[in-house]
Design a protein around this nucleic acid. Structure first.
Lengths: 191, 191
DNA sequence: AAATGAAGTTAAACTAGTTTAATCTCTTTA
DNA sequence: TAAAGAGATTAAACTAGTTTAACTTCATTT
């Protein structure tokens, strides 16, 4: 669990007292490949920091097909934030694609830590600011680039994820069908 | 400027001292229709809270066509956040679509207020959390709904914006051409 | 009152990406 | 070693949305 405390301490400085206050609220947990950290419809009460493994966040649309919103690997946070902050049923499923180890904190504990360690609020403010900016960039790419270029950028930005995740999931993340991604790939290979 | 302080005090409680500290860092500014609050390429140094008016945030793609990322009306914050937090050239333009009055705070002052009034960090953490969740929902809608349904949802969610902004801009925001939006509208009208 | 220009509409030809369906290649398991 | 199943590929028919271009409407300027 110290891994996470060290990770946080890279952004904000923490006293020994604060480190141990934080540490006392963290728990380790393991999930097997295929297991769900959170499911659509359940209220999300915990935030998970991935120590090892791969995770996807996805939802099912009206016709029952899956759409992947994001992947998570080591050092990423996962959890349905909308559900966590409003304490209403989750829109998204969070599923492990490999055996995965996480460090978790409950929303309740997090809220009380925000009060005892105000700097922690800074850590999460900065984290979410960055997540927001990158989500906005994703909208930009979706609106102005064709699928082939989005795929190439994905490979450049997330080579680690690209190598650990099946292609039909990458297609889903990019917002195209697996068949079309396959065409794009063979077109790239021919070049 | 008290408008903004009151607005913030709805989420976090502020002492008289804190209110006046905050107030001393705020400035009013007016823009005419068509003027830019911020331009692509410039480093964003201020955050603006809209008191009156309508604003759009947009960018130009490689082929020079405009894509609207977001609209802003009364009580919304605008500014290229990516540029503001990393102090690098903005990707986006922020332009007034009507004569607009804003209350502004510089990033520098905001950063120092985060230290003197830690609760302010909470206000912005919560603000960004919500913005993040709604941006993520927008990706979901783009990936799983056809243009017609996205347009209908836009009218439901933002009737105020829909009535104040030309249709070709709504089309741009939805990620479709103005011609196709026109077809959708005539199809809805015929129903 | 005419002329200009910005916003919106309509329609035909086109294309990026989807759908359907068949085939292929691996692993995994019996 | 066969059989089952998950992931990936290919190709043909299809469709949601784009492009191009001509036309309409209405507010603004001259």
């Amino acid at each position: 669990m110290e891994v996470l405390v060290d990770h946080i301490a890279k952004t904000i400085s923490l006293t020994e007292e604060e480190r141990s206050q934080l540490m006392s609220k963290l728990t380790n947990r393991r999930y097997l490949k295929g297991q769900y950290i959170g499911q659509e419809g359940d209220i999300t009460r915990i935030l998970s920091f991935i120590r090892k493994g791969t995770v996807r966040t996805f939802y099912l649309d009206a016709s029952g097909s899956e759409h992947i919103i994001s992947f998570g690997i080591e050092n990423w946070w996962v959890g349905d934030l909308g559900s966590l902050i409003e304490q209403k049923p989750a829109d998204y499923n969070v599923q492990c694609l490999e055996d995965t180890e996480v460090i978790q904190i409950s929303n309740e504990d997090l809220q009380s830590l925000y009060i005892t360690i105000p700097k922690l609020e800074r850590f999460f403010r900065i984290l979410i600011e960055r997540a927001y900016v990158s989500t906005q960039k994703r909208i930009v790419r979706k609106q102005s680039l064709p699928a082939k270029e989005r795929y190439i950028l994905f490979l450049e930005h997330y080579p680690e994820i690209a190598s650990r995740v099946p292609q039909y999931m990458i297609a889903s993340y990019l917002g195209i069908t697996k068949e079309f991604l396959s065409q794009i790939r063979s077109q790239i290979a021919r070049t």
